[in-house]
Write a protein that binds this DNA or RNA. Structure first.
Lengths: 196, 196
DNA sequence: TTTTGTTGATTGACCCGTCAATAAAAAATA
DNA sequence: TATTTTTTATTGACGGGTCAATCAACAAAA
């Protein structure tokens, strides 16, 4: 019983289904039928709206990225000092929505797929650069640019590393502990400056 | 022209071929024929020696892990102080052999596959635990166990994170810079203790 | 009647794993 | 030593399965 105006709803449902499918299986090795089934439609419809599987995956990654961006901007909005900006960026990356096994598994899988797909690689590079510049937006108010650069790099690496370890379900268990580790690094890195 | 005693040679060649194939494609999505072709044999032979694809992949991961273990033990052997032990472990992870795009891509791909394969997951957990305990072997000589635990966790996360970023060919470019970032963290973390 | 939504069925490609067959070396037997 | 037999090495061909993508067809809204 076709109703008009289904396209946006179907697209959203298919993207959600893609995330949950990838999250559950832990890799991009999910079939179009599997995804479509979760969204309650036929695989033919998924192809109808997205053309090819690659494009569905790309759209999904874009969606995840957009979510992260929105969350980050929101968090940055309510931060008044440079120090708070840095903490806000860190906190967002470990927020309930972002630090879920499903989302993390998807991230990891996309990282791997990025080696094959140049459009995906470009997208991930945008994310990496944005994370860096978001961290910089706080750090440059605290330390010289050159040092801020290195601290941002180390912080970003630490965040990514904690993500991976979460995916393995080994090591750091919860978000709070992860945040504590990153904040501890930042604290001594920033405290260093006060003393001298 | 069959010669006797080929088995170990073929096994090694197939494992090498697996690493280079995975490294080049950037994912485990390599066919048995592709791997066998690189090793200069037929896909049937690969099956003959390894049974199934899973087992070849597992053997490959085991091989990479064994290499890393050997390198680490060698490095730890020539470290006399606890501080040197820590640096040795860090250095090994960024040594030329380990920090190559091919090897890194393989690591990343295996991380993803580990979500599906429990035997692979077990193997990676062994690696994570070993890295942790290797770091601890130095850190416990410098700070209380509880704090050493946290520093080891943060260091390990940073190492893993720098690996990922290397795979993306973005951010930290060379091993020296990566080592500098980790060492900087360790230095202030250790220096902190001197001052108080 | 044109547009939008939807699917079952099908096709074509790809790939894992198996098997029968071949050939040379090694071991056993005469 | 000469022969047969067994073991080891190796591959081409193929069966069976999976899956992305297509298409014709149908139904309801505009």
């Amino acid at each position: 019983m076709p109703k008009v105006g289904m396209e946006p709803l179907r697209r959203k449902a298919l993207i959600d289904a893609t995330i949950s499918a990838i999250g559950e299986r832990g890799s991009l090795d999910v079939t179009m039928s599997e995804i479509a089934g979760r969204a309650g439609v036929s695989s033919a419809l998924a192809h109808h709206y997205f053309g090819a599987k690659d494009e569905l995956l790309l759209a999904t990654m874009r969606y995840i990225l957009a979510e992260l961006t929105a969350d980050t901007l929101r968090a940055l909005g309510s931060a008044s000092t440079p120090r708070e900006r840095v903490s806000a960026v860190v906190a967002v990356n470990f927020s309930d929505i972002q630090f879920q096994p499903e989302t993390i598994a998807a991230w990891l899988a996309f990282y791997v797929e990025a080696q094959k797909s140049s459009s995906l690689r470009r997208l991930l590079r945008v994310y990496a650069r944005r994370l860096h510049s978001n961290l910089m937006s706080g750090l440059t108010g605290i330390m010289p640019r050159a040092e801020a650069d290195r601290v941002a790099e180390a912080t970003a690496a630490m965040i990514d590393g904690l993500y991976i370890r979460r995916a393995l379900k080994d090591g750091v268990p919860d978000a709070a502990t992860a945040i504590a580790l990153v904040e501890d690094y930042l604290e001594i890195k920033l405290g260093e400056r006060h003393k001298q």
